[in-house]
Amino acid sequence: MKEKEPLKIDKDMIEELCEFSMLMPPEADDELVRDIEGLLNILSPLDSVSTAEAITECEEDTVMREDIALPYCEAESFLSSAPEHTDGYIRVPRTVE
């Protein structure tokens, strides 16, 4: 694909992206194709950028945390936000490995 050609999106690509994003494919495919192409149009100026050299900034030392274990809260507090839980575990439908 030549860099300068505007990118075309089709329904298959939308479906694949939905799969990667864990979204259901939309009913109105055409509208979404048009919307995403509209967004890609906004990105098209990036085609003219050449990234010969990466620019690195001067960096401060990384701030790190000391290795001390601190209890945060009881399991119940975490589970109270969960839609479904049982015996102290979060529950979901059977997951295939």
Binding site: R65, D67, I68, A69, L70, P71, Y72, E74, A75, F78, L79, D87, G88, Y89, I90
Partner: peptide, 18 residues
């Protein structure tokens, strides 16, 4: 003693989600 990105204990065992 603690996890890589938070201060929770890494101790083996323990009640689930504790």
């Amino acid at each position: 003693a603690s996890k890589i990105f938070c201060s929770c204990s890494t101790a083996y065992g323990g009640e689930a989600n504790s």
